[in-house]
Write a protein that binds this DNA or RNA. Structure first.
Length: 419
RNA sequence: GUGGGUGUAGCUCAGUCGGUAGAGCACUGGAUUGUGGCUCCGGAUGUCGCGGGUUCAAGCCCCGUCACUCACCCCA
């Protein structure tokens, strides 16, 4: 083996890429209709950005970031997620000064140094969307309506939308304390991880997958019952709007987030067809993030979808490659030269056309034309060239006719246009 | 960071009791000197992951190592 790629960072080859292009094109179309515009930000940022936004004690920041010093000694990090860089850009360019509302989406690679497994890679790709400047529950509902519409439109099977509310800086500390107190009484029933978590991050114990913990926390205080009146009202309205829009969801009061900046509404698109990697899209409201990063006190909400996971769920079938309109088969040097000229003229006009470049038998050329699934083959031999004609063979009908060389381009253009 | 599984042709995989490699697909040439698919005949292709050991002899047994993969953890 010579040089190989890096563990957990995959090549996306022709045959697979078509699925990705489809997923991206649908996102652009649907997000566009909902008023979003694309933003592209660098894949590296100052490390500090992620520490401050995602949270110092999260797994992502503690052990999963690709962090290095550049030649000037600045600590830089390959982005592990997309929201923080987009917010950094939003603040830096004062987009709020041009428009009180920004709807942005992004597509691109993210990096986390984890052990790779199915649906989890070190370089992975996300499509994300963010709305900044609106705290009305209508927007929460609209974001969710768009997300579930996207999943329907690309026909991803077996997903369900789960929603929850994490409260705000006003009510969350109270709940956190209540939960922490509760966990303390059940401490001996918890797994080692949860015993550690009940002081550092008690919410995480709620979605622990260890059966013993599930049981021990089954009577835990209800997050939704501890919401302050503002958060409670917001969540009720979100649900009401979702019902009105006929967006199907279930409330999962135990759903928590791996990033610290989330507030109020949070949600996940989950599946059980990807093993333990059950989240294919996730997001929530982050009303404090922008001010935490030094920007104005603007609310935000958004989500990210994992492209690898979406592609896995769409299945193995490869989309068929585009069908050439014409394959030019030639015999003899003069005919090959004429064929090559014609080929390039057609390609310049946007017609997908091919030929055999390395002088093979006519049989071999036709075999290749067939393999490419070509619609037509133009057979150009010395005899025809002398007459200024060629055989135009329609592969599907196994039928051919002699046509003049001058008429070919116009004829092809007309046939393609009519089809 | 912790476990399990798997490494043989471009791909998917056989390979018996240790006797120095095979199939299908794909590729390629031919079966009418200028006509595809189906069929038939032929051809090329391997550091058997790598390194060591045992043995007259190792793809197979032993030790080490690397890679890939799945799972835990965490997450999109």
């Amino acid at each position: 083996m010579s040089i190989t790629g890096i563990k957990g960072m995959n090549d996306i080859l022709p045959g697979d890429i078509e699925t990705w292009q489809y997923l991206e094109a649908q996102a652009r179309k649907i997000f566009g209709a909902f008023g979003y515009r694309e933003i592209r930000v660098p894949v590296v940022e100052k490390t500090e950005l992620f520490c401050r936004s995602i949270g110092e004690t999260t797994d992502i920041v503690e052990k999963e970031m690709y962090t290095f010093s550049d030649k000037g000694g600045t600590s830089m990090t390959l982005r592990p997620e997309g929201t923080a860089p987009v917010m950094r850009s939003f603040i830096q360019h004062k987009l709020y000064a041009q428009d009180p509302v920004s709807k942005l989406y992004y597509i691109g690679p993210m990096f986390r140094h984890e052990r790779p497994q199915k649906g989890r890679y070190r370089q992975f790709h996300q499509i994300g969307a963010e709305v900044i400047g609106i705290d009305d529950p209508k927007i929460d509902a609209q974001v969710l309506a768009m997300l579930s519409h996207y999943f329907e439109s690309v026909a991803i099977p077996d997903v369900s939308l789960q929603i929850n509310s994490l409260g705000c800086p006003e009510c969350r500390p109270g709940y956190r304390q209540a939960l922490s107190d509760f966990l303390e009484t059940r401490q001996d029933l918890l797994c080692a991880d949860c015993q550690r978590r009940y002081t550092t991050n008690p919410l995480r114990a709620l979605d622990c997958k260890v059966p013993g913990c599930k049981e021990a926390t089954s009577e835990a205080p209800d997050m939704l019952a501890h919401l302050c009146s503002g958060c409670d009202d917001h969540f009720s309205q979100v649900k009401a709007y979702l019902d009105n829009l006929e967006v199907v969801y279930t409330v999962n009061p135990r759903m928590v987030r791996g990033l610290d900046y989330y507030t109020k509404t949070t949600f996940e698109m989950v599946t059980n067809s990807l093993g333990s990697q059950n989240a294919v899209a996730a997001g929530g409201r982050y009303d404090g993030l922008i001010s935490d990063l030094g920007g104005p006190a603007l609310p935000g909400i958004g989500f990210a979808m994992g492209l690898e996971r979406l592609a896995l769920m769409l299945g193995e079938e490869e989309l068929v490659p585009p069908r050439p309109e014409l394959f030019i088969a030639t015999l003899g040097i003069a005919a090959t030269k004429a064929g090559f000229n014609l080929l390039t003229r057609l390609q310049r006009q946007g017609i997908l056309a091919e030929m055999e470049y390395t002088g093979k038998s006519l049989k071999a050329q036709l075999r290749r034309a067939d393999k490419l699934n070509t619609r037509r083959v133009l057979i150009l031999g010395e005899d025809e060239l002398a007459r200024g004609t060629a055989q135009l063979r329609y592969m599907d009908e196994s039928h051919q006719e002699e046509v003049t060389l001058e008429s070919i381009e116009a004829r092809l253009l007309k046939e393609i246009h009519d089809a």
